[in-house]
Computed example of a mutant assay.
Amino acid sequence: MAGKPKLHYFNGRGRMECIRWLLAAAGVEFEEKFIEQPEDLDKLKSDGSLMFQQVPMVEIDGMKLVQTRAILNYVATKYNLYGKDMKERALIDMYSEGVADLGDMIMLLPLCPPDQKDDKIAQIKEKTTNRYLPAFEKVLKSHGQDYLVGNKLSKADIHLVELLYYVEELDPSLLANFPLLKGLKTRVSNLPAVKKFLQPGSQRKPPMDEKKLEEAKRIFRIK
């Protein structure tokens, strides 16, 4: 019997959090090997574990997978969260990429220079309410189904709901005019595996604070 997937990253959200969400939603238990010092990262590089010298890295099914989207696609395929045919997968990929575009803006916000942060937040809010959330609301309205693609839970739904939590952290009012998205968020959040992941004490990571940002900069040698 294969062991649990092992996730190699620092103890924060970053580019691993969407992988944690997807595994948790699939009901998969996983272990985490936290990178706590720059030397931990150096060791992974020197022993050949990181194909492109960077994390996230996930050990799963005898492989050491890197590149976030490759990991997500493997997990989604393995646990039947990737549609039933090529057309559904194309839609799932398209929606997931849209989620990633906005998610990356929010994820990188802590790295924004203080004198630019207010402008960056305003830009993110504008794109959230005028570009991204209306597009996803329109998809749900167009077919009237519970999930984005094929009326079945997919990685696109999980990624989108994760994003909606981050949008709420930024400004809860941003979701006010999107009732179908709020419904999707409630629906996915109430799935037993996701509900468990959302409970205190789970492997879900909190928002990036100043202390965690400094830890990440030290580990990854970010100036």
Rank of each mutant, 00 (worst) to 15 (best):
A2M: 14
G3H: 10
K4E: 15
K6V: 15
N11M: 02
R13V: 03
G14F: 10
G14C: 02
G14K: 04
R15N: 12
E17P: 00
E17Y: 05
E17F: 03
R20L: 08
W21P: 01
W21F: 00
L22C: 05
A24P: 07
A26E: 00
G27T: 08
V28Y: 04
E29F: 00
F30T: 05
K33E: 15
E36Q: 12
P38K: 12
P38H: 11
D40T: 02
L41K: 04
L41S: 01
K43R: 15
L50N: 09
M51F: 14
F52R: 05
M57W: 13
V58N: 06
E59I: 02
I60R: 05
M63V: 08
K64P: 01
L65G: 06
V66P: 04
V66A: 14
Q67W: 08
Q67V: 05
A70Y: 09
A70Q: 04
I71S: 11
V75C: 04
V75M: 04
A76W: 04
A76G: 05
N80E: 11
N80M: 00
G83L: 03
K84D: 06
K84R: 14
D85P: 09
K87D: 05
R89Y: 00
A90V: 13
L91C: 10
I92N: 01
I92A: 00
M94N: 10
Y95H: 08
Y95N: 07
S96Y: 00
E97M: 12
V99L: 06
L102V: 06
L102Y: 10
I106M: 12
M107P: 02
M107E: 10
L109Q: 08
L109K: 03
P110H: 09
L111F: 15
C112S: 10
P113D: 02
P114E: 03
K117D: 00
D119L: 13
Q123S: 14
I124L: 05
I124N: 03
K125V: 13
E126V: 06
T128N: 08
T129H: 09
R131D: 15
Y132N: 09
A135C: 10
F136P: 01
E137L: 11
E137A: 10
K138P: 02
L140A: 07
L140N: 08
K141Y: 07
H143S: 11
G144I: 05
G144Q: 04
Y147H: 14
V149P: 00
G150A: 07
G150C: 07
L153E: 03
K155G: 12
A156I: 02
I158Q: 06
I158M: 03
H159C: 14
H159M: 15
L160N: 01
V161L: 05
L164R: 06
Y165T: 09
V167F: 07
V167L: 05
L170W: 05
L175K: 06
L175D: 03
L175W: 13
A176D: 15
A176W: 08
A176R: 14
N177Y: 07
F178S: 14
P179G: 12
P179S: 10
L180Q: 15
L181M: 09
L181E: 06
K182W: 09
K182C: 12
G183R: 11
L184A: 07
R187D: 03
N190P: 00
A193L: 09
K195R: 12
F197C: 00
Q199G: 07
Q203V: 04
K205V: 02
D209T: 06
D209E: 11
K212N: 10
L213T: 04
E214H: 05
K217G: 01
I219Y: 10
R221K: 15
K223D: 14
